[in-house]
Amino acid sequence: MQYEILARPAAAVAKLTLESNESITCEVGAMIAMSTGISVETTSGMKGASGGFFKGLKRMFSGENFFLNHFTANQPNQTLIIGPTMLGDIVHHDLRGGSLVIQGSSWLASDVGIKIDATWQGFGKAIFSGEGLFWVKATGEGSIFLNSFGAIYEVDVDGEYIVDTGHIVAFEDTLQFKIVKAGASLIGSFLGGEGLVCKFHGTGKLYCQSHNPPNFGKLLGPNLKPR
């Protein structure tokens, strides 16, 4: 599979070129356009596997869809264009064993061999991280496409690193984060507009997004006229 990410970073879409019998698993509704030699299979689990009902339910809790779409090329050199709902960037991550923990709605697509599941990060993080209650956990080897609200920037963490709540896209399983206050005093942290932040610890790749959907909503909401 070849990939090309177009129109970055504001309105990115991923153009994938599939050879015969190559497949990719995508988020429901991600397909924008495709060649005629591609077939679509919809399941609640991994491609070709039976069951997956509970996995589907868990995925729903993490902000993803109950179903997954598997696109398979029946002919050589087939093009599939996929994109996210929100305006923003797409990034390709090469998963080499282990897993990638992805924020609720940031998973866009991945190789069929990668298992997509939901994971719980604990109460404190569920309440204060500004992300969903559950996270998507992608395990295996292959390509993953992530999407963000705004631009994505990548950080190789070795030691500690701080990200504001609501700006995490994904992080490798070798990283762990804790919710801490931004400043020395809790009141100062909130007055400064930063409040609580996520402090990462460990070694691994971290993807952050430049914008944060809840804050954007808060800014926009009061200016909308009631229907």
């Binding site: 923990v101 990060q121 490798e172 399983d173 070798t174 762990q176 460990g202």
Partner: peptide, 10 residues
Amino acid sequence: MGGASGRMVF
């Protein structure tokens, strides 16, 4: 020790 699960040993 750490990682996303909290029990990964480095």
